[in-house]
């Protein structure tokens, strides 16, 4: 534990000393204490909390839509072999399209509103969920499926008792990955397009030369990211405690 904290302590010390010793210009990297002070001032304002709230709202709505759509589409496509073969090439084509390519379109359609953020978040997060669900459905043990069929389970019962339990760990992996990606896209949309949120605060701080505020806000986005990652991992462990293995990503 002490060892784990020592790394963070070293990082803070480095960020304090480098500008103080003049190795890095304080105009470019303010000392850690300066960043902390800026963070303290910002945290006392209502607008900061509004920005955090805006970012989190966009993140949550986008993630919820992406997860719902991804799970539904994944189960449907995965459970029907013909559909799966038919859509495979399209999925492989659409998935690597960088969501930031949609930024100009988002701006035209939604301006700087919430819709812009949501378009980017949903597009990026959807594929993460869909692909994991497809892996999960493909992982169904043929013996289990044949057992279910030999007992004349209805198609719905097979989805409910064979497909879904097998796919569930993958669904969680997909949600965890999508949660991280959704935050990245939420902040990106705010930064580039100017939808309200932390990213927009960073953009304003940058253009007005408020360097310590900019760093403070970046730290906040990092902390949000860590909290989301840790939270997703904890939720995964809790919900899947019954499962033989809380598994990692599929390396494919």
């Amino acid at each position: 534990m002490i060892l784990r904290l020592s790394g963070l302590a070293a990082l803070v010390a480095l960020a304090e000393l480098l500008p103080r010793l003049g190795v890095v210009s304080p105009d470019y990297l303010p000392p850690a204490s300066g960043i902390a002070a800026a963070l303290g001032r910002e945290a006392a304002t209502a607008s900061f909390w509004t920005a955090v709230g805006d970012t989190l709202v966009a993140w949550a709505i986008g993630l919820a839509v992406a997860v719902t759509a991804g799970v539904a589409a994944g189960l449907l496509v995965g459970a029907v072999p013909v559909l799966r073969a038919w859509t495979a090439s399209t999925i492989e084509f659409l998935r690597p399209i960088p969501s930031v390519a949609l930024i100009p379109l988002a701006v035209l359609l939604y301006g700087t509103g919430l819709g812009s953020s949501l378009l980017l978040i949903v597009y990026a997060a959807f594929w993460q969920v869909l692909v994991q669900v497809l892996y999960g459905v493909a992982d169904v043990d043929p013996v289990a499926d044949e057992t279910a069929r030999s007992f004349r389970f209805s198609p719905w019962a097979r989805v409910r008792h064979v497909l879904w339990p097998t796919a569930l760990p993958y669904v969680f992996t997909g949600i965890r990955l999508a949660a991280a990606v959704a935050l990245v896209l939420a902040v990106t949309a705010e930064l580039v397009i100017g939808s309200p949120g932390l990213g927009a605060v960073i953009a304003v701080a940058q253009s007005s030369g408020a360097v310590p505020v900019m760093y403070a806000m970046i730290v906040v986005t990092g902390v949000l990211g860590v909290l989301i990652n840790v939270g997703a991992r904890l939720a995964e462990r809790r919900f899947l405690a019954w499962h033989q293995s809380v598994r990692g990503e599929v390396a494919l």
């Binding site: 991280a180 935050l183 990245v184 939420a186 902040v187 990106t188 930064l191 580039v192 990213g199 960073i202 806000m217 970046i218 986005t221 990092g222 902390v223 949000l224 990211g225 860590v226 989301i228 990652n229």
Partner: peptide
């Protein structure tokens, strides 16, 4: 560092 959204 990984959790910081890269575009910032």
């Amino acid at each position: 560092f990984r959790a910081i959204p890269p575009p910032v």
